[in-house]
Design a protein around this nucleic acid. Structure first.
Lengths: 111, 111
DNA sequence: TGACGATATGTCGGATGTGACATATACTCC
DNA sequence: GGAGTATATGTCACATCCGACATATCGTCA
């Protein structure tokens, strides 16, 4: 399956700003994939912020590294849905909560 | 993150039969991960069966191969959540539908 | 200003995942 | 029994992902 090729063009910049660029040349499923990732990513950051943990703390908890956590929270292309979901599960999220995250409407990022 | 190590012991056989072996030595999040995978996997098979497509047909549609589709539908350890979700998205599933699958209660496999 | 703590970005070696192919198994229908 | 079609299983080369490390950027406090 393709995907990463097109993704690359994205990460050059942008796509965190608006509403996840359908205005860019993403196929519907690519857009949906990125949307999903961003939702999980920002939920993860939210979770961590609420408990006032540093990325390093969180990393230790799920046996990862600070840099990878940063990438997770940024929805970096090098992070898979798989890792995001496993991480949330490792933090005790239930499948119901995961589902809620997935259906949630994404709140505007910054102003 | 560990995971695959333990998983290996599973695939020797079993784990498709009962209720996804908490009776095996899986940590809660590992169990949840496998559960999730199985739900998506069986939904995929269901989707395909309903349209009376062969695995080969489906594979062509999502640019994969018959064997990988078989593995996806079997929830094989070599298949990531990522691939399962991307495939469902590629088949036109909405995030809402994905979420529904995730929360769904799994029906008994065979008798 | 500088020092400090937190987060971001870049890179790399090794681990996992992926499509493809070969082959095995299963199930008709003749 | 064989032929034909579908699905399962094993393997492999190549791609992608991962944790780790180094380093850069940012924010705050003195």
């Amino acid at each position: 399956m393709m995907r990463e090729s097109k993704r690359k063009r994205l990460e050059a910049k942008g796509w965190r700003v608006g509403s996840t660029g359908e205005f860019l040349n993403l196929s519907p499923e690519e857009a949906a994939y990125v949307e999903l990732k961003i939702k999980l990513a920002s939920k993860l950051r939210e979770w961590r912020a609420r408990r006032r943990l540093t990325q390093g703390d969180l990393a230790r908890r799920v046996k990862s590294s600070q840099s990878r956590v940063a990438k997770m929270e940024a929805g970096d292309p090098s992070v898979s849905l798989d890792l995001l979901i496993r991480t949330l599960l490792a933090l005790g999220a239930s499948s119901r909560e995961i589902a809620r995250i997935i259906t949630s409407r994404r709140r505007a990022t910054a102003a």
